[in-house]
Structures are given as structure tokens and as C-alpha cells.
């Protein structure tokens, strides 16, 4: 059996990268436009990118023992804490960025 926290690790990586994409596309109109051009709407593009990131990171972790070992994927406690921290940080980051933009406008 693969380390049980593989998918929790993968979710943490996906949410971190997706959060960065979301914040960047809110800050850069050009990036937002290019995301919109991909599928017709930036939200659909972000959703599809999120799914692809989750599948890719899960595949990478499942396929490589060395990556799992170096990321300590066997430690479910560590990665569930990381998932919680990354998600809350990204939520706060998105809220802070949107609030700052609203106040500046």
C-alpha cells in the first residue's frame, strides 16, 4: 500500500499552486485574460487547472518512492496539518487581496 497521506500531500500542493494562480490572476489583468481565453471563462480554466494539478501531483507521488520519501509522505499528521495551514493561508490571502483591491478602488 502506498503511503496513506499521498493524496493529502497532493491536495496540499494543489491548493497552494491554485491559490497562487488565483491571487496572480486577480492582480494581473493579462494573466486573467489568458486564462479566460483558454476555455472561455477564467473560472472554468482555474477549475480545470486545479483538477489537472491534483491528478499530476498524485501521479508523481504515487510513481516515485524517492519523492514520497523526501516529502515525508508517510507522515499523515504532518501533511494534514500542512493541508489545513495552506488552505487557511490561501483563503486569507485571497480575502486580503480582494479587500485591498476593493478599498483602493
Amino acid at each position: 500500500m502506498k503511503e496513506s497521506a499521498t493524496f493529502i500531500t497532493s491536495a496540499s500542493i494543489t491548493i497552494f499552486l491554485t491559490g497562487c494562480i488565483i491571487i496572480t490572476h486577480d492582480l494581473s489583468a493579462g494573466f486573467r485574460q489568458s486564462l479566460a481565453e483558454l476555455t472561455g471563462h477564467h473560472w472554468i480554466s482555474v477549475s480545470i487547472i486545479t483538477l489537472i494539478l491534483f491528478v499530476l501531483s498524485s501521479g508523481l507521488l504515487l510513481g516515485s518512492k524517492s519523492v514520497r520519501k523526501s516529502l515525508r509522505v508517510y507522515d499523515a499528521g504532518l501533511w494534514s496539518t500542512a493541508l489545513m495551514a495552506v488552505t487557511l493561508l490561501m483563503i486569507l490571502g485571497i480575502l486580503a487581496e480582494l479587500t485591498a483591491r476593493f478599498l483602493m478602488e
Binding site: A11, I15, W43, S47, T50, F54, L83, M90, L95, L98
Partner: peptide, 17 residues
């Protein structure tokens, strides 16, 4: 709403995981 539409994308990932 802008935050909800984006934060929401995280939710299925957490549920799938």
C-alpha cells in the same frame, strides 16, 4: 462572491483527497 467562487475550487480537492 469573488472570494467564494475561488475558494470553492479548493473544496472538491479536499473531498477527493
Amino acid at each position: 462572491m469573488e472570494a467564494k467562487e475561488h475558494i470553492f475550487v479548493f473544496l472538491p480537492v479536499i473531498f477527493f483527497a
